[in-house]
């Protein structure tokens, strides 16, 4: 119940922020941060050496593969498509470690890449859509999906399981697709 209240409060706060144009003020206030990011040593490396940027970008994709593999198998199990003979909770715990490893690789390489092209991405709407999707994905995975499955996965209705699995697949697909679209913008 406290978690439900927290999620509702967060959603309400986000809705109010959009309604009151607070997100535009926050966006304007963030410009100095993005300008500073480009001046950091990490930003300088990414801007100067194209090869370093490309290799870090490749590791970003490998992190995506790791996270995607864990999400696909975990949600595939929730949908009853694979490993149905393995206890859900045990499989969730094991795949969570792989998921977190993939997420950390994505975050670390993502910050490096963002520093190299900070001012460019600051003005790209698709970058902010990706950040929003990523924030939703992380909150959903860690504050909703995982506690929900840890507490009462055996008693959950099959329909709720399917909804959780489909929501998870959709949110991470959105993160990956919007991330790829940054490169085309």
């Amino acid at each position: 119940m406290p978690r439900t209240i927290m999620v509702l409060l967060l959603s309400g706060a986000a809705g109010f922020a959009v309604y009151a144009d607070l997100h535009l003020q926050a966006w304007q206030a963030l410009l100095p941060l993005f300008e500073w990011m480009e001046t950091t040593p990490v930003g300088a490396i990414g801007k100067t050496w194209g090869a370093a940027f490309a290799i870090i970008e490749a590791f970003h994709l490998l992190g995506l593969a790791l996270l995607g593999g864990a999400v696909l198998v975990a949600d595939g199990r929730l949908l009853g498509l694979c490993f149905v003979e393995i206890p859900q909770r045990w499989l969730e715990d094991q795949l969570h470690r792989v998921f977190m490893a993939g997420l950390w690789v994505l975050l670390i390489t993502g910050v490096f890449m963002a520093c190299a092209v900070a001012v460019k991405i600051y003005y790209l709407p698709v970058y902010w859509f990706k950040m929003l999707a990523l924030a939703v994905g992380i909150v959903f995975a860690l504050a909703i999906r995982r506690p929900l499955l840890q507490e009462n996965v055996e008693r959950m209705s099959p329909w709720l399981r399917r909804v959780v699995a489909l929501a998870s697949l959709m949110v991470w697909f959105t993160v990956a697709a919007t991330g790829r679209w940054i490169g085309f913008s």
């Binding site: 994709l61 490998l62 996270l67 995607g68 593999g69 697909f173 790829r180």
Partner: peptide
């Protein structure tokens, strides 16, 4: 690129 998540994942 996204099919990486299925194949390599």
């Amino acid at each position: 690129v996204l099919s990486l998540t299925i194949s390599l994942g």
